[in-house]
Simulated scan of single mutants.
Amino acid sequence: MRRVSDILREEREKKNLSLEYIEKTTKIRVEYLKAIEEGRFHTLPSESYALGFVKNYASFLGLSRARIVALFRREYKEENREIIPNFRKNTNRFSKNPFRNSKNILITAIFLIVAVYIFFQYNSLLFGPPLSVSSPKNGETIHNNVVEIKGKTDPYAVLSIDGEEIFVGIDGSFKKSIYVFPGNKKISIVAKNRFGKETKQNFEVKVE
């Protein structure tokens, strides 16, 4: 038995009409007309939309709406029967082992954690810990005899200022006030990790 899509397409071609012309006349978009002529009804917005498009298309071509609608309903049901089992088949394929996906995710997460850990350990073997001093700035002029030194480093680093070990907070921040005499004062800060790798910063301030 001939299909709705074939009947509509053949009638359009017999009348030598383009899809673009039919779109302008019926207001049915070209992509929907193509889907109808190719029998891809499931790609249309819904069954009611598909039925309306097919009715209007059949009327425009001068075909029997009742016959076309009857054929459409039969074909639409057949198409759904083909789509639904395939969907269930694919769904069952992923649901046979509900723990498989969780296991794969867990393995991937563990692998990433180990990789990150190895990277940081390797980095510590080659380089000293990060060290930044926010205050004072190199070359800054201080107008009192107390210089407050602030900065940040690795929270596990051993930090010293001018040879004196300084406490480092859990977030890596440190702060130390030192007494200085007027004139130029050189300050040395050293951060050392557990592998003995050091990062140094030397700067000078002017005390007035």
Rank of each mutant, 00 (worst) to 15 (best):
154 D>N: 11
180 V>C: 02
207 V>Y: 07
130 P>T: 01
108 T>L: 15
36 I>N: 09
1 M>N: 15
58 A>W: 14
24 K>T: 09
77 K>Y: 06
103 K>A: 14
175 K>S: 10
46 S>K: 06
76 Y>D: 15
2 R>H: 07
98 P>F: 09
187 I>T: 10
152 K>Y: 09
199 T>D: 01
137 K>Q: 12
77 K>S: 13
204 E>I: 06
154 D>L: 12
61 L>A: 06
81 R>A: 14
144 N>Y: 02
134 S>K: 08
124 S>F: 09
112 L>W: 10
40 R>F: 03
54 V>L: 07
129 P>C: 01
50 A>E: 04
135 S>R: 13
119 F>K: 05
142 I>Y: 00
100 R>E: 15
140 E>Q: 15
133 V>N: 07
45 P>I: 02
62 G>F: 11
88 R>M: 10
117 Y>H: 11
76 Y>T: 03
188 S>V: 08
142 I>N: 04
75 E>K: 09
120 F>Q: 11
168 V>H: 06
41 F>V: 04
39 G>D: 02
176 K>C: 07
5 S>N: 14
36 I>T: 08
79 E>L: 13
208 E>Q: 01
65 R>N: 09
3 R>Q: 11
125 L>G: 07
183 G>K: 04
182 P>H: 04
1 M>H: 12
92 N>K: 09
100 R>D: 07
169 G>S: 13
140 E>K: 01
124 S>N: 11
129 P>L: 07
54 V>D: 01
162 D>T: 02
154 D>R: 05
174 F>H: 02
171 D>G: 11
199 T>S: 12
44 L>C: 04
73 R>Q: 15
162 D>L: 08
